[in-house]
């Protein structure tokens, strides 16, 4: 017996935009069903995904070229389909959905440490990737490198 109710795929794909209150349609691209909307709110999305018994997969963070900022892509699985939702970040922060979706805990923490993105409304415990240091140095190009004992960054010491 299946523990998760299987919702017919066509009904589900139609139902999600309706439940989110948006008029945009799904676009299938690169192995993902994308639903793009400027009015989409991440917490509304998480609540709808819960209602649809969707399984959270991951969040992918992108640093856009130049000063275009950061983008997050949230992925859920429904009946073997990958659903994708993209969010352009303002001021490097977005509301956390940890209280709605327990599975996002580690990836929100990892993105916080790697890209210095603040998921507001939650507390962080370090994953030890950057414990005691400035978040965002690992993966963000704008991060300030650590200074070594000589006062130079590790990269500058290698060059020297």
């Amino acid at each position: 017996m299946n523990a998760v109710a299987i919702i017919p795929e066509q009904n589900l794909l139609q139902a999600i935009p309706e439940k989110l209150g948006i008029s945009e349609r799904w676009v299938e691209k690169g192995g993902v069903h994308w639903l793009a909307s400027d009015t989409l709110h991440v917490r509304d999305l998480a609540a709808v995904m819960n209602k649809c018994h969707a399984r959270f997969i991951t969040i992918t963070a992108y640093q856009m070229p130049g000063d275009q900022g950061l983008r997050l892509e949230y992925h859920w699985d429904v009946n073997g389909n990958v659903l994708g939702f993209s969010f352009q970040l303002a001021a490097n922060s977005i509301e956390s959905i940890y209280d709605l979706c327990e599975a996002v805990d580690w990836i929100e923490r990892e993105i916080h440490e790697g890209f210095a993105i603040d998921f507001t409304g939650r507390e962080y415990e370090p994953l030890l990737l950057r414990q005691g240091d400035t978040p965002g140095v690992n993966l963000r190009e704008t991060g300030t490198p650590n200074k070594t004992a000589t006062g130079l960054s590790a990269q500058e010491e290698v060059k020297k």
Partner: peptide, 28 residues
């Protein structure tokens, strides 16, 4: 538990041992 396996988003044999019949070889 099955409910905790769902809420944690577990995958593979860990999920299947808690009653979740998910396998990408079959689903996708």
């Amino acid at each position: 538990t099955n409910q905790r396996a769902i809420s944690c988003g577990t995958v593979g044999p860990t999920a299947r041992a808690s009653g979740l019949p998910q396998d990408l070889r079959r689903a996708a």
